[in-house]
Design a protein around this nucleic acid. Sequence first.
RNA 1: CGGGAUGUAGCUCAGCUUGGUAGAGCGCUUGCUUUGGGAGCAAGAAGUCGCAGGUUCAAAUCCUGUCAUCCCGACCA
Length: 477
Amino acid sequence: MERIPTKNDDLSEWYNAVCYRAELVSQAPVRGCLVLRPYGYGLWERLQSELDRRFKETGHENAYFPLLIPESLLTKEAEHVEGFAPEVLWVTEGGTETLPERLAIRPTSEVVIGVMYAEWIQSYRDLPVLINQWANVMRWEKRTRPFLRTAEFLWQEGHTAHATEQEAAEEVARMLEVYREVAEDVCAVPVYKGEKSVSERFAGANHTFSIEALMPDGKALQSATSHELGQNFARAYDIKYLSEDQSEQYCWTTSWGMSWRMLGGLIMTHGDDRGLRIPPKMAPTEVVIVPIPRGDTTALYEAARALYAECKAAGLRVKLDERPGQSPGYKFNEWDMRGVPIRIEIGNRDLEAGVATLVRRDKAVKEDGQKQAVPLGEVVSRIPEILEQIQQNLFAQAKAFLTEHTFSTTDRDEFVRLCTERAGMVDVPWCGRPECEAAVKEATGASTRNLREPALYDRCTACGEPARYQAYFAQSY
RNA sequence: CGGGAUGUAGCUCAGCUUGGUAGAGCGCUUGCUUUGGGAGCAAGAAGUCGCAGGUUCAAAUCCUGUCAUCCCGACCA
């Protein structure tokens, strides 16, 4: 395996190289699409299981809806269609027949699911409906990059229907918090929570909330969104119920989603010049055991296999690398590239001393604490605590970066400079006007990432009008 | 969609200016020696030079067209 470009020199090249060299993905023979290799899929499965567990805990069930949406249905919610029209892929033929009506490949599933909800929901007793779907969707993106923006991507989309606006709002807040928790506590990627501005929000939503992470190049990454759809989709798709007082009411619906883009955020946030550094909770393999053969290896392999069995029994995601063809040094580098949090080296030298050498991926080579000798009998019991330390350490490093690259200002010149230079998250009081946001974007390339209330100062830093929000401005992926 | 670049072995690329038998490193296969941060030696397998036309005795190389990919922008909840 060849070396990769350094992360600081060229983040973009480094990022691509890591994705391919760590065998997360391969380039597909289709424009803008990604092949997820087993190791990449392993990462996705970790994210899936962490999210899915939380969805179940908050009362949701999984279901599956069709990939294709008839054009006549898609066009019912005007804002929604308008927002997605430029990116929709259309199916026009089936076999040798031209289809009587074009079918859209779903860019998101509000429409199909809305149609079904209209059928399923009759009474206030049917509410709330709390459904999640694991799916692929397609958006014809002009420019693609692994995980961060691909034509086809994997995600989950929750779709719920409620009797009242307040219930819907609570649902949206609850799921946003689930996303924050998964981003920060599982992926170790710190984020800012807030509401999207009018021009940044989901097409067809009344309110969109997001979590936003900051990448090493100072660009923000929208990592998940949660939408209050009001009664817009209910009216367009006729999602109605008879209430307790016998009046007919439209439902209040929500949708929320996180995609494999989160994995891209994780990769960029934690990776270093040796490759990936995967937070233990997300690692498909938490521990890899590398035996170091020399001379008589009978006892060595026996000990390595015993250790492997012991890890397995303790419920760890563990691999034993017994490949005979590669040198230990090669294996060290390869597992570093793949970001496995803990490596256990065991050779005759260790065996004679009755120890194994534990190596932490979050530390640099030869950094204090990177390697430690642990008595063989204590190895497995020590691992959980070290994994936890690595998890915490990666989050702390990322959090420090976010904090150091978040700038608060009320000075317009400084604001413009910070935005233009891609300094990071620029936190300013803001008026909330779309014209103001458009002007900032025109001048600096940055837009609001998300907002929170109230404003901490009277005047909008960008235009001087009365401020309504505190806004994070940044350029974005 | 605008600007730039690139398509030659699994990967990274040289060869093209000045047309003349298809190259290197890494990887892969076999064997021996090795193995604590990317091992050594030896032998071997592997490419219709992105695709289509044209010029020529002869095209990876020159010309035209076309497709694809990457980078930077615009666009993108």
